[in-house]
Write a protein that binds this DNA or RNA. Structure first.
Lengths: 337, 337
DNA sequence: ACGCCCAAGTTTTACGTATAACGTCCTGCT
DNA sequence: AGCAGGACGTTATACGTAAAACTTGGGCGT
């Protein structure tokens, strides 16, 4: 037993096993082959077990100069999407003996003045999701290895990037709706300055401009049920021919669009088709179930973490986009008349 | 400039300011009054600023024997509820200079064999949410200050507990439905061995037994859309008089119940009333909007963190339950006939 | 004039770990 | 017989910080 009630240290283990502290470190660090006899190694392991020894991570981190801990910066945790990203990143991290600390940037997507303010941990690297460029600069100042998720590759200042192939998702949506015969579209866009949403707008416009006779209106709303409802309602009641399909930047917006359509007495999908993007649990709870683009959040987090591990290893991370796929459910149908 | 490209240490700052390392520590630790002149203190601060000095947390943690970091153990991050708990806990923590590391127990609610397996951080304390008793024992073995969220106070082995007043929420639901005239109930229960769900079942039974002429059937399902759908569908098609109200253990189950009701051609709330519990974003997206009990997840997390801070301070945390309130929306109405 | 205390620092130490550098047998070979 | 070298360790040191213990040079009271 160590004196007092403090946690046992490697020295306590050494004493209990009748060896030096260095031997304990070698054995428990699995570097004992050819340096310590198997019998002694066993004694040490038993003593450690007996005392309930757990290494002091602060001391180890100080000694090694690294912490095997990385920071994941995400916008506010308001959907399960980022929970999935975290889960995926944490899983891969754990497999490599790393831990992940979460930092929900208080200002949401956009500039974060003090990227690490509340993160008490000492860090080996950072994964930043959907961040604005100025926050990026603040982070880079710390010289930490950095991976950006869903961010403009051209503005990433040399940081590695991992992206979902959102552009392809938009192509799949527009292809689906055009194939059904839709020509008049409303784009319910997230009113957030973020690359991932710019891509949606740009790609959608590019897809539709190719097809003669199409029209595209854009409504903007913050990602909230109420705002989406209001914006859609306004957009659908403006004079002129009504859009037959509403393409929403994400599922939450789509839920608002559903309610707006219902308020106006429109049936989904008979009178109006609606699509989302994310494939949250919400998508299946809506009635009819939402046609949307499935994003594999966990895989996204996994890839992000793998890229960061590569950077930490001095390797160059692969730059492939993560595929996404359209899930056709009940909210889309050919336009009537 | 320090030699090489390593991060500047307090010694580098000392050299730049022409003082000893101890002086730097005193100044930056704000313990310099009466020990260092104001002019020197300024020189030190400027030097630190100039070099971009940031203290090495591993070294500080080692020296101080504490990390100002706590672990929040939650079941899988599949709903925004636990995201809210985290957000609240992290906010309070940040105000006190603490960080929060998240550990989503891989086995979900229930036994967690290796509570800290993937948590690389050195910890000052633990907040554990909805955990089973055996996992608790494993945690207690580590002698860390512990606060339990939504856990059986009688089985908490002396750990502080913070609970939502779920029992009161159940009373509000049953009062609401009984007041509307309902007498035949289906309880769609979460098929998870956790105290928070046991409370729901016990309290509901207790509420209904007081009222003559009531019947209560119970269906069980894991918390998933599909399972809830299947369980409800089975329960509603068994012979005998059909329940007029379905009380669900949480909103996600309610979403499944909605779909089951629709499949059977039942209108909500005309033919059947449905209630949830949580008040997730989902609740407002359903059509009609879900009558449910609002849980203030962020406040829950805040209270949990405050309790842990109290324990760390040697104070006794208050043992008050957090109030919840019924939100009546469109999914409940008097039974027809 | 002498001692004392205070301001303004400095020197030293400890936290617990990982590892480089250094001993000491003993075995086997020439 | 002598000696190389492997097996099995030990000793010593550094990581960066906080803080206790020590130093030094006035200024002030008596």
């Amino acid at each position: 037993m160590p004196r007092g009630s403090t946690r046992p240290t490697s020295r306590d283990v050494a004493e209990a096993a009748g060896v030096s502290q260095a031997a304990v470190s070698l054995v428990l660090g699995d570097k004992w082959r050819g340096r310590v006899s198997a019998a002694t190694a066993d004694r040490v392991r038993h003593a450690a077990q007996e005392l309930g020894y757990r290494p002091n991570l602060a001391a180890r981190n100080l000694r090694l100069g690294r912490t095997r801990t990385v920071l994941l910066v995400v916008p506010a945790l308001t959907t399960e999407f980022f929970a999935g990203v975290y889960t995926g990143a944490a899983r891969v991290a754990a497999q490599h003996g790393f831990g992940v600390v979460l930092y929900p940037s208080p200002e949401g997507i956009g500039p974060a003045r003090d990227p690490f303010g509340s993160a008490q941990a000492a860090l080996d690297g950072v994964i930043a999701s959907s961040m604005a460029a100025d926050a990026l600069t603040a982070i880079r100042g710390d010289q930490l290895p950095l991976v950006m998720l869903d961010s403009d590759p051209t503005g990433s200042q040399g940081a590695a990037t991992v992206n979902l192939d959102i552009a392809d998702g938009v192509r799949q949506i527009s292809g689906h709706l055009l194939g059904l015969g839709h020509r008049r579209f409303l784009h319910l866009a997230a009113d957030i300055p973020s690359w991932t949403f710019e891509v949606r707008a740009r790609e959608l416009a590019a897809c539709l401009v190719e097809v003669p006779g199409t029209s595209l209106h854009v409504a903007r709303a913050p990602i909230s049920f109420e705002d989406a409802l209001a914006a859609t309602q306004t957009a659908l009641t403006t004079p002129g021919p009504r859009p037959t399909a509403v393409i929403c930047d994400d599922d939450k917006l789509a839920a608002g669009a559903y309610k707006a359509a219902r308020r106006l007495g429109l049936r989904i999908p008979d009178d109006i088709s609606i699509t989302g993007l994310d494939d949250l649990a919400l998508a299946r709870a809506l009635d009819p179930e939402l046609t949307t683009v499935h994003l594999d959040a966990e895989r996204f987090g996994e890839q992000g973490m793998k890229a960061l591990l590569a950077v930490l290893d001095g390797r160059t991370p692969p730059e492939e986009d993560i595929p996404v796929h359209l899930v056709v459910r009940g909210s889309t149908a050919p336009p009537n008349a």
